[in-house]
């Protein structure tokens, strides 16, 4: 492989995955600066990895390494954990928050959907994001998160159930009380599922 090839490959990987990975890492570590550090490190690791090994499973590899780096980062306690709501909901001061026209145009149901997502445990949020935002397959999500495929299925199912319930509520509902969300632990432990009972059908 020539240096030019390698550069082109790297450039392509950066173009395709840089911003999604930072979005994912930001959700995990709760801080866009730390997320950038994490993702930079992921790509530096990509340089050291064997291209033939990684290339066929590039997305899975990148998401997995990002998650591991993020967990390492959190374990070092570098970043004070933020609440899920803060990390996910469009917090005005954050540069990963939706801004400008996007925010203005955001409809009620979209806000409600994000709200509902914010009430879920970190584990549930993560699988929903990986599926709905990043488009990973259940199998890839399982590999990235270290869960079994069926566990991924259950989490997504539960998450969607809570989401449906929230979106079915009348639009006047004002979310005032703090949701009983778990801290954004991303360790592959079984997270409480309390959020899925937030509203009964």
């Amino acid at each position: 492989m020539t240096a030019e090839d390698r550069t082109a490959w790297l450039q392509g990987a950066l173009d395709q995955f840089e911003r999604p990975l930072i979005a994912y890492a930001t959700h995990l570590v709760g801080d866009v600066h730390a997320a950038r550090d994490v993702v930079q490190d992921v790509f530096l690791r990509l340089l050291r990895a064997s291209r033939t090994d990684v290339e066929p499973v590039l997305a899975r590899w990148l998401y997995t390494v990002t998650r591991h780096r993020a967990v390492d980062h959190l374990r070092r306690g570098k970043v004070a954990a933020r609440s899920n709501a803060d990390a996910l909901d469009g917090h005005p001061a954050r540069d990963d928050a939706p801004t400008g026209p996007e925010t203005l145009a955001m409809r009620d149901d979209a806000r409600h959907a994000l709200e509902a997502l914010g009430r879920l445990s970190a584990g549930h949020q993560e699988v929903l994001r990986l599926r709905l935002s990043h488009g990973l397959s259940y199998a890839d999500i399982a590999l990235v998160t270290g869960l079994s495929v069926s566990h991924v299925g259950v989490r997504i199912h539960e998450g969607m159930k809570a989401l449906r319930a929230r979106l079915a509520e009348p639009a006047s509902h004002a979310p005032t009380s703090a949701p009983p969300s778990a801290p954004p632990s991303v360790a592959p432990a079984s997270a409480p599922r309390a959020a899925s009972h937030g509203a009964s059908r």
Binding site: L21, A113, R164
Partner: peptide
């Protein structure tokens, strides 16, 4: 619901800083 949430969740986050990108490409 999935479509709604999917639309509300930006797939892309922030970019790496120019320096970070440069560092990666340079290393490459």
């Amino acid at each position: 619901a999935a479509a709604t949430l999917s639309a509300a969740l930006p797939r892309d986050g922030a970019s790496l800083t120019a320096l970070q990108r440069q560092a990666i490409l340079l290393r490459g």
